Amino acid sequence: MSTMRDVARVAGVSAKTVSRVMNNDRYVSDDVRARVLQAVDELQYVPNVMARSFRSGQDAAIGVAVPAVTGFFGYVVEAVERIARDRGVAMYLTCLGEDPDGEQAAVEALLARNVVGLLLAPVADDQSYLKPWRERTSMVFLDRRPRKLSAAYVVHDDNGGTRLAITHLLDHGHRRIAFAGDSITVPTTARRRTTYELTLFDGGVGMDPFLVSWGAHRVPVVPRLLALPDPPTAIFSANPSCSMPIVRQLHAAGRSEIVVLGFGDFPMADALTPPVSVVEQDPTELGNQAAQRLFRRIDEPDKRLPRQVVLPVTLVRRGCCQRARMGPAA
């Protein structure tokens, strides 16, 4: 069976150029593309992911398991699907929901389809069940690091983004900063909660446990916070699913002077009054990076590759972080 190096030799180009042509890179010239494709045809070259599937009896397909297929993870899945389609690889998708007890069964059902690779955003706190599968299936975790399993992952900088947000609020005079998250069992939320406390401490502010709320994506948390003897002047939200209901609750209570700063952008955040500043993530880039790394591991299973990739985030200031006020607005 011909290899990529054979194609490169016949076409008179580098193996990297062959890879770019096979991945439909638009920056390859027409002449080079034609030479490579002619060599591919002459040698009857099959890309590695397909060749591996022929040798192992596995499908030329990857599996993707994420908590949801809308919002943030919807963009991630779209990016992965585009890269897989460009490579002529099918994609099986499963939605894990929020049930950690159901993760193993759902993921193993996906792996039972003989996929050559797996992209996983876990919801459980233990992925050791995947150890028997690693020998035959390449794996990359996305958005969330694996637990009790050594594996490659691509994540956003949760710690750096949270530090940016809390420091920004402290610099604007806020000292009563609440934290609102979905669940401490979600790894990204747990990291943001820890960094929230550490950044307050570094700023000379002790954390008040009464300012921490969980389940903010499902139950109203603003009424309890406003009822405190010393309510917050700002709320840091761990993700968009918490940010949107918090903003609605504050507007309903007539307390729009309380600042909301969220991790992750959400629709209409820039059009609200006041607009909501956010720590901006790029779910499309997350999906691109995770898929590219998965296919590289499939193509080069014996090569030592970087295990972790941490993507940068940015603080988008939209003018909502006014100076802290003492007491409710008049």
Rank of each mutant, 00 (worst) to 15 (best):
S243G: 09
A68R: 15
V313H: 05
L96D: 01
V186P: 05
V276W: 07
D143L: 01
D270A: 10
V40Y: 04
L170I: 10
R35A: 09
T314K: 08
A152R: 07
T195V: 10
V89F: 10
A253W: 03
A65Q: 00
P132M: 00
T167A: 14
P47K: 11
L93I: 00
S19F: 05
Y129E: 03
R5Y: 11
G12Y: 06
A15D: 02
A68I: 07
S128L: 05
V247G: 11
P232E: 00
V116F: 03
T199W: 01
S277K: 11
P231D: 03
L119Y: 04
D265N: 05
A151M: 13
L250T: 00
P187F: 12
G161W: 02
R307A: 12
R297I: 02
R52Y: 06
Q249P: 12
A8F: 09
I62G: 07
M1L: 14
R192Q: 00
N23Y: 02
Y27V: 06
L294E: 06
F295A: 00
L311N: 12
M4H: 08
A79T: 10
N288I: 15
H251V: 06
G57N: 04
E285W: 02
V77I: 11
L305V: 08
E135S: 14
D208H: 02
R175P: 10
L130K: 13
T162P: 06
D31G: 12
A190M: 07
V260Y: 09
E81H: 15
T185N: 14
W133T: 11
L118F: 07
A227E: 04
M91G: 15
R5K: 15
F236C: 00
S2C: 12
M207C: 15
P187Q: 14
A112R: 14
G74H: 01
A124V: 02
D171F: 03
I258Y: 08
